[in-house]
Structures are given as structure tokens and as C-alpha cells.
Simulated assay, not measured.
Amino acid sequence: MTVTETSALQDLDARLVKPTHKGPTHVAGRTAFRGDILLTDAESPALTAAIAAAESGPGLSFLAGQLEKFSLLPVLVEAFNGALVAGGKYFIYVADVKRGDRYQIAFGEASIYVLPYDDVSVYNELIDFFYLDKTKLKKFDTAAKIDALADGAAKYDESFPKLTYEEGLARL
């Protein structure tokens, strides 16, 4: 039995490593994870500095993290095996995306916000991105911080240029 038994995180449980939080949050029906998520096996690349939240419905409602290479996006989507759904908010910082580039890549019904990664903290970047109050967040426990990020993501409605995966590859 795992603490993510009733959510979309359940199927990912074996891939969830180095957790600083794994379980329910302060929002009823929401479970969350903060740590690293392996993409295939123990030797595989991982989505590092990952923050994920799932509500009682299907799929993840929120996901953020860092990837080493843009070419790992399809591997990430496959690893999540249907957990990335329409309406979810997914923010992936990628090391080989050019500084200043921002776009959305559709994989099936899910849309992934792709952002450049340059040794930044995903958590700190998201706080700025969603215009959250850093001082207020410092007083929160990890579960409440994830709730604040997931709620900020849910309200986020900006759009970036929409590209296919192949068009994104061509921009590297």
C-alpha cells in the first residue's frame, strides 16, 4: 500500500524517487509528490526537481520539473503512460532549449509548456511564473507549498507559440 494509492500518481509509484513529499496535501482529494521521477528504470534519465499533483479524477492536474534534453520529452510522455491529460498544466524546464525560447508542445490531448533551464530552481521559477508571494510561502510546509503551486498552475492561462515536437527539435 502506498500513500498515492487513490490518484494518478499510483501508477508512477515505482518511479518516484528521492521524495521530500509523497502523499496527501491540505486540499481535499489532492495527492502530490516532490522529488525525482525516473523515466524508465534505475539507470535512466529522470525528471529532476519534479513537483506533481493529482486530484481524484484521471491524470495529473499539475507537473513541473527539469529535463536534460528536449529529445527526452517523448520518453517522459511515454513514462507517464496516459497520466498527462487535457486540461492538466505541465511545465518542463529543458537544459538544451535556448534562453528566451518558450513554447507549448502537444502530445495527444496534453499540452506541455517547454521552458529553458539554466541551473535554476524549478520551485523558485514557478513562484515567479505564477506571481506567488515568496514571503508567505516560506511559512508553509511542503504540502502547502505544492498546493500553492498547483493552484497557481490551474489559474495560469497564458499561451506560448504552439509547436510540434519536430518543430521544437529544429529550434535547438
Rank of each mutant, 00 (worst) to 15 (best):
A170E: 14
M1D: 09
E158T: 09
L115G: 03
Y117R: 00
L84M: 15
T135S: 13
K18V: 05
Y103Q: 11
A8D: 03
A150I: 11
L60I: 07
L163F: 05
Q104T: 15
A28G: 01
F160A: 14
P161F: 06
S111G: 08
I37V: 13
S159I: 09
Y90G: 06
T31A: 13
P19F: 11
L137N: 01
I127A: 11
E43V: 02
V75W: 06
G168H: 10
F70T: 06
G88K: 04
I37A: 07
P58F: 01
D118V: 07
Q10D: 00
G88Y: 05
T25C: 04
N81R: 15
L84E: 07
G152L: 10
S159Q: 14
D133T: 04
I37Y: 08
A53Q: 09
K89T: 02
A46C: 13
E158I: 06
V122G: 07
A110S: 12
K136V: 11
K18W: 12
E125M: 09
V114G: 00
L126F: 06
G35N: 01
T164H: 12
I146Q: 14
K145I: 12
I92Y: 08
L76H: 04
K145L: 07
F62D: 04
D36H: 15
K155N: 05
Q66V: 09
L39W: 05
F62M: 10
Y117M: 00
H21S: 03
K138N: 12
L132Q: 01
F140L: 08
A64G: 02
